[in-house]
């Protein structure tokens, strides 16, 4: 009997196809794992960078900002903010929050210590050197 597309055939294509592409993905991910530390200069992840990252995570910065385009679209991109504004401006800005200007978007005051601010800037500086295939298109992020 010449069978037309049976259910078990469809199931086999599903299982086989999923396994097939999963293997390919795992191989590609293995390769990506070798490449990423080179592209983001993992060797420059100093204790300050790691501490800064932890502060950025635990204050939910991506709840308003984006980092390399990921996060929320309420506030500017942080991936290249170090190159856009420089470390001193960033520190002063964080200290000055909230601006309290009527109607403007507000950022909370987090009461960071000086060494915490240094860590955050170190992290943002590290972020700005990641090879992101030339994204964002310009300094405005």
């Amino acid at each position: 009997m010449q069978q037309v597309f049976t259910k078990s055939m469809a199931r086999n294509i599903f299982l086989g196809g999923a396994a097939f592409f999963l293997i390919i993905y795992l191989v590609l991910t293995y390769d990506s794992w070798q490449q990423i530390p080179k592209r983001d200069h993992a060797d420059q992840m100093t204790p300050a960078v790691i501490a800064g990252k932890y502060l950025v995570d635990t204050h939910d910065c991506i709840g308003c900002h984006t980092i390399n385009g990921e996060g929320s679209y309420y506030a500017p991109e942080l991936g290249n903010v170090y190159k856009r504004r420089g470390g001193a401006f960033i520190e002063a800005w964080i200290r000055a929050q909230p601006t309290g200007v009527a109607g403007r978007r507000q950022m909370p005051q987090f009461n960071f210590t000086q060494s915490q601010l240094d860590d955050i800037v170190a992290y943002l500086k590290w972020l700005s050197n990641i090879d992101t295939n030339n994204w964002p298109p310009n300094i405005q992020g």
Binding site: M1, Q2, Q3, V4, F5, T6, M9, A10, I13
Partner: peptide, 20 residues
């Protein structure tokens, strides 16, 4: 049991052709 007769334009299971 029917053979794959000449009326069948494609040899083999139809599903494999969708897949191909």
């Amino acid at each position: 049991m029917k053979t794959a007769s000449s009326a069948q334009p494609l040899p083999g299971d139809f599903a494999i052709w969708v897949f191909i």
